[in-house]
Deep mutational scan, measured.
Amino acid sequence: MAAGGDHGSPDSYRSPLASRYASPEMCFVFSDRYKFRTWRQLWLWLAEAEQTLGLPITDEQIQEMKSNLENIDFKMAAEEEKRLRHDVMAHVHTFGHCCPKAAGIIHLGATSCYVGDNTDLIILRNALDLLLPKLARVISRLADFAKERASLPTLGFTHFQPAQLTTVGKRCCLWIQDLCMDLQNLKRVRDDLRFRGVKGTTGTQASFLQLFEGDDHKVEQLDKMVTEKAGFKRAFIITGQTYTRKVDIEVLSVLASLGASVHKICTDIRLLANLKEMEEPFEKQQIGSSAMPYKRNPMRSERCCSLARHLMTLVMDPLQTASVQWFERTLDDSANRRICLAEAFLTADTILNTLQNISEGLVVYPKVIERRIRQELPFMATENIIMAMVKAGGSRQDCHEKIRVLSQQAASVVKQEGGDNDLIERIQVDAYFSPIHSQLDHLLDPSSFTGRASQQVQRFLEEEVYPLLKPYESVMKVKAELCL
């Protein structure tokens, strides 16, 4: 049975990233139509530049190519590739079939990587351009969430054990800070992308030097003109047959890092959902379990974690691919890159769409948070109580021993009897502590235990987050809708 299948058929496997999760716009960027249309555009740009620099290419040939950029006979191309065992030459023939007058000058002087690699770089750039505003929107939604809850005390956790208090907004800023680093890295790697350009079979530009009869300047002009037509500021000066596969490492490393950030955020949300302090959106008709109707599973956060793990592992592909590119190139890269580049971007696209949807509907339960604080705060307040007693004339050592005994009794009630923490009640009825009984409410005010959390939130948002989001103001209103 021949390899390949009808990918629109229910009898043929289709990647869930495309069929179930990723956005239509990201799927289109990695589609065959987008790819092969870009090949034709690159052939047109090459012909236009070659004509401008004096090669015998007519206006009629150029116009014929322009008129057929979208006229792609995919069936013919597939048949040609089956016959020739070469995808680029299959599309040269297919393009030439609908451009008979231009057929002889299509791909003039070029090698397969002229269309293959340059198209990949265009796709990487455009895919990054799709991700950047999506990530900015996630940051914006979380920034709104953090600002609104900047002063809401909550129990902090280290080692997932109760620690000092923080605020809900401050905790959210930990998430935002990681995503801001990801946004900066995505922008950097996007701006650092260079075009492969017009380089020939081993990167020496020998074929173009021959076409222009040894004119170095025209060869350099050709490279520059096509690079500018493709919208790049610069091209690699040095290439082998391909652009260095280190570029793929750079791009997928940034995406993998984004995956790590999203995994951490969504894990926190899942843990908070278990504590009943916070939940992701839950639709009115949504079913959490087929057997347990009360369940409210954090399905979206779980999906993000599941896909983020996949995204983090994909960076190993370009690392290994770059390491086995012998001399000017081997074909070890080809099949692998067809999979890992598309999957990385479709996965990143999915987790950003999902995280935006989550961040637009996060639900906080202040009463649950308050109750958990009441359970733990008495123990945390013991040092403040000791200091207040010393100020009232008591002995630190005597007070410490009193607190120690009462704390152990209260802990026994919590752990052995399943009761509430009654340390404060014990202190309130103990005559030894009568000098500070009137101060206990103040000493137990949760806001006095959150330090500068709310001020940190305000400063972080104003100095770091809002300036970073400013270039994306025009796209901030787009909502994230999930079908599944």
Rank of each mutant, 00 (worst) to 15 (best):
S67W: 09
K246L: 04
R338W: 04
L193W: 00
I106G: 01
A411Y: 06
T119L: 08
T450G: 09
V88E: 00
V92I: 06
T202G: 11
E50S: 09
G394I: 12
F30W: 12
L186H: 11
G451D: 00
N68L: 08
S290W: 03
F236Q: 05
Q241E: 01
T239E: 00
V390L: 03
K276G: 07
A3C: 14
T111K: 03
K224W: 14
P366V: 01
S474K: 15
L135V: 14
A22W: 08
S334M: 04
L341S: 15
D441E: 13
R337C: 05
I287Q: 02
G96R: 00
G169A: 01
T38D: 00
Q416T: 08
D332T: 05
S474L: 14
I176V: 11
V254Y: 09
L211Y: 07
H437P: 04
R337Q: 05
R234Y: 10
K101Y: 11
I427T: 08
Q205V: 06
N384T: 09
L482A: 13
P56H: 12
L183F: 10
T204M: 02
Q439H: 12
I123E: 06
A411P: 03
E383T: 03
F236N: 05
T158M: 00
R14M: 15
C180G: 11
L377R: 01
G418R: 06
G393C: 06
L69P: 04
L69V: 12
A342V: 15
F74Y: 09
A335P: 06
A47C: 06
H93M: 11
V465M: 05
W43A: 00
A256K: 02
C340T: 09
F208S: 02
T321F: 06
V189W: 07
Q409F: 08
I351R: 04
V324D: 12
I62T: 11
T58I: 08
L377W: 02
Q161E: 00
T202E: 01
R141A: 15
Q397H: 04
S67G: 12
L252G: 13
K415M: 09
I238M: 10
L53K: 02
I105H: 12
F157G: 01
Q456I: 08
A453M: 02
K233Y: 10
L352I: 13
V198S: 06
D422G: 06
P435G: 07
V115A: 07
L362H: 08
T119R: 01
K199T: 06
P293S: 05
P471I: 15
V226S: 04
L271A: 10
T239D: 00
F433C: 06
N357S: 15
A453G: 11
L84Y: 10
Q241R: 00
K170R: 13
I436C: 04
L55H: 09
E64S: 13
N336W: 02
